[in-house]
Amino acid sequence: MDTYKLILNGKTLKGETTTEAVDAATAEKVFKHAANEHGVHGHWTYDPETKTFTVTE
């Protein structure tokens, strides 16, 4: 398992979190669910070198 990071750049919610996942696709599902639960919808990017997802509203 690897550690993946999410950076939230929402209009009303900003922050960072991490998750352990077997691959980037699994981490993305976890992060998108969490972002949706917090009402953050926007443009997603992924940097494979740093294993970091970013969502920007």
Rank of each mutant, 00 (worst) to 15 (best):
E49Q: 11
A35V: 10
T52Q: 04
G42E: 01
T56H: 08
G39A: 06
L6D: 02
V55A: 03
A27E: 00
T52I: 06
A35W: 06
K51S: 03
F53H: 01
T18N: 05
V30D: 05
L6Y: 02
A25V: 10
L13E: 07
H41E: 10
H38D: 05
H43V: 15
G42R: 02
K29M: 12
A24S: 08
F31L: 05
N36P: 03
T12A: 09
N36M: 14
G10Y: 08
L13F: 15
A34F: 15
K14N: 09
A35F: 06
T45C: 08
I7M: 05
A24Q: 09
E49L: 13
Y46H: 01
W44A: 01
K32A: 07
K14H: 11
T52V: 06
D2Q: 14
A27W: 01
F31C: 01
T17L: 15
Y4Q: 02
G42Q: 03
N9I: 15
A25S: 09
I7L: 06
A27V: 02
D23F: 03
H33F: 11
K51V: 02
L8Q: 02
T50F: 06
D23T: 05
T50A: 07
T17Q: 13
K32G: 04
T56S: 08
K32M: 10
K29C: 10
K11P: 10
I7Y: 05
H41V: 14
K32W: 10
A35P: 01
H43A: 12
L6P: 02
Y4A: 01
F31G: 00
E49I: 11
V55D: 00
K11R: 13
H43N: 12
E16F: 14
T18I: 09
T54G: 03
F31E: 00
A34R: 13
E37S: 11
Y4E: 02
A34V: 15
A27I: 01
D47E: 09
G39E: 05
Y4V: 01
E28T: 03
N36T: 10
F53Y: 05
T26M: 11
H33Y: 10
E57N: 04
H41F: 15
P48Q: 08
K11A: 12
G10N: 04
G39V: 04
E37H: 11
F31A: 00
V40L: 10
F53M: 01
T56C: 06
V22Q: 11
K11G: 08
F53E: 00
Y4K: 02
A27K: 00
E28H: 11
V40K: 03
K14R: 12
G10S: 08
A21I: 02
E20P: 06
A21E: 04
A24G: 04
F31I: 01
T17V: 15
T45I: 07
T50K: 07
T26I: 06
N36C: 12
D2N: 14
M1F: 12
T45N: 09
P48N: 07
F31P: 00
F53P: 00
G39D: 06
A24E: 07
H33S: 12
G10W: 07
T3W: 09
F31R: 00
L8T: 05
E37R: 11
L6A: 03
E20G: 05
K5C: 07
K5W: 09
T18K: 08
H38M: 15
N9M: 12
T3I: 13
W44E: 00
D47L: 04
H33V: 14
Y46L: 02
E28F: 15
K51N: 05
E20K: 13
T54I: 07
T54A: 04
W44I: 03
H43F: 14
K32N: 05
L13R: 07
N9E: 08
K32Y: 06
L13Q: 09
E49V: 11
T26V: 07
L13M: 14
A34Q: 13
K51A: 03
K51F: 08
E28K: 09
K51Q: 05
H41T: 12
M1E: 06
L8W: 14
K51L: 10
H43D: 14
G10H: 05
T26L: 05
G15E: 10
V40Y: 06
E37I: 12
A25K: 10
L8A: 04
T18H: 09
D2V: 12
L13H: 14
E20A: 09
A34N: 07
H33L: 14
M1Y: 12
T3Y: 06
T19W: 07
A35Q: 03
V30W: 12
V30F: 14
L6I: 04
T45M: 10
M1D: 05
Y46G: 00
N9H: 09
E57H: 05
T18W: 13
D23V: 02
T56K: 05
A35T: 06
N9L: 14
M1N: 08
D23A: 03
V40A: 04
E20S: 10
T56G: 04
H38Q: 14
N9S: 07
K5P: 01
L8D: 01
K29N: 08
